[in-house]
């Protein structure tokens, strides 16, 4: 069961982890894994996101002593994840499409569930703020308040990102269905 994080409790864990407490870092890993995975998934293929998670947390653990304010941890971890994803893309020198069908028509199963590859591809085409917030909500299953706590964004910003991002995604899906 994944644990929702509370800011005050996280601050204690971050300070303890920076002082070398392995258990505290392990707890941070558990708490922030979904956020890191979601950030990576916004940029790299699903299989690569899994592989890169370890890199992100190892980099964070190595550099944690240099973090001056515990409150900066979510944004800082998010930046490490984004940078690692970009390094990965530069290293692979290619951005593989999620699906060869990505440019095609929207397919739905008999129960009306849309093609997951295509939906993720459409989400990844949204502006960064909307893309990350929507992935955390729709893929990782986090609620708006959880996203706000873990990303360091204000609840108002998250709400706006979710609403605007969802509106753009609905339009994109509608456009695909109309094809």
């Amino acid at each position: 069961m994944l644990v929702a994080s509370e800011p005050a409790e996280d601050a204690g864990l971050i300070r303890a982890a920076a002082a070398g407490d392995r258990a505290a870092f392990g707890e941070l890993y558990v708490r922030y894994a979904r956020m890191v995975h979601g950030i990576l998934l916004g940029r790299v293929a699903p299989g690569d996101a899994e592989d890169l998670m370890q890199d992100v947390f190892l980099a964070a653990m190595k550099q944690l002593r240099g973090l001056r304010a515990a409150a900066a941890f979510p944004g800082w971890l998010k930046a490490i994840a984004r940078n690692r994803a970009m390094d990965h893309l530069r290293g692979s020198r290619e951005r593989l499409p999620l699906s060869e069908e990505s440019a095609g028509k929207l397919h739905r199963s008999r129960d009306g569930v849309p093609d997951a590859f295509l939906v993720l591809d459409l989400v990844r085409r949204l502006p960064e703020a909307y893309r990350e917030t929507l992935i955390l909500r729709l893929v990782e299953g986090m609620t708006g308040p959880e996203i706000a706590r873990q990303t360091g964004l204000t609840p108002e910003s998250v709400r706006v990102n979710l609403c605007r991002g969802m509106k753009m995604l609905r339009e994109a899906l509608g456009g695909m269905e109309a094809k």
């Binding site: 995975h37 979601g38 569930v113 093609d115 990782e140 299953g141």
Partner: peptide, 19 residues
């Protein structure tokens, strides 16, 4: 619509053991 999207995308949700 959101519920259907959640259902479709859940396959890529972070899985603790796989992570």
């Amino acid at each position: 619509e959101i519920a259907r999207l959640e259902e479709a995308l859940a396959q890529w949700r972070y899985q603790p053991a796989a992570g």
